[in-house]
């Protein structure tokens, strides 16, 4: 069953959850062949009813110890712009659509989403353009992402601190 996984990390992002479960968005997902929508809603106050989207099978949860399994099962990941969620999705090799929360006080998250978008690793949009993006996006333009080299950091630190 082709699945879309939506994740907001530890934030609350009611606008994203509200938009993705609107009948227009659900219709757009259905038209692309997605049949199942899994929502990780974090601290959000808006909790969609399981039967609120007749077009698509809906599952909702707040938090899990690990969302790795949900990422693995997904054919498309829609995420807030948090680094952890973005990098987890890219690390799992999933097509990623980032929805930027333009209501945040200091919208630095845009920088990373834009840079990774410039490097063709993800698509990005805001809540107001989400439905349109779901209709028109082309996932075949995305390039695979190479994870960061933590070992280089560890080696540097070992040397600097004199660790044997």
């Amino acid at each position: 069953m082709r699945t879309v996984f939506v994740t907001v990390g530890t934030t609350c992002f009611d606008e994203l959850i509200g938009t993705i479960t609107s009948s227009e968005s659900a219709q757009a997902l259905k038209a692309r062949g997605y049949e199942r929508l899994v929502l990780q809603i974090g601290r959000g106050s808006f909790v969609p009813e399981a039967d609120s989207c007749p077009q698509i099978k809906l599952e909702v949860f707040r938090f899990k110890d690990s969302i790795a399994e949900d990422m693995k099962q997904a054919d498309l990941v829609i995420s807030h712009a948090g680094a952890g969620s973005c990098l987890e999705a890219l690390g799992a090799g999933k097509p990623l659509l980032v929805v930027v929360n333009d209501k945040l006080m200091d919208n630095h998250q845009l920088e990373l989403a834009q840079q990774l978008h410039v490097d063709s690793h993800l698509l990005y949009c805001t809540c107001s353009t989400l439905t349109e993006t779901l209709r028109s996006m082309d996932l075949s333009v995305l390039q695979p992402y190479q994870p960061g080299q933590t070992k280089i950091f560890a080696n540097f630190l070992d040397k600097a601190l004199g660790v044997q």
Partner: peptide, 14 residues
């Protein structure tokens, strides 16, 4: 959130 994921990736390498 994301800060935790990032720092755990760093910790993993140490």
């Amino acid at each position: 959130g994301g800060h935790t994921s990032e720092i755990l990736r760093l910790m993993e390498s140490l």
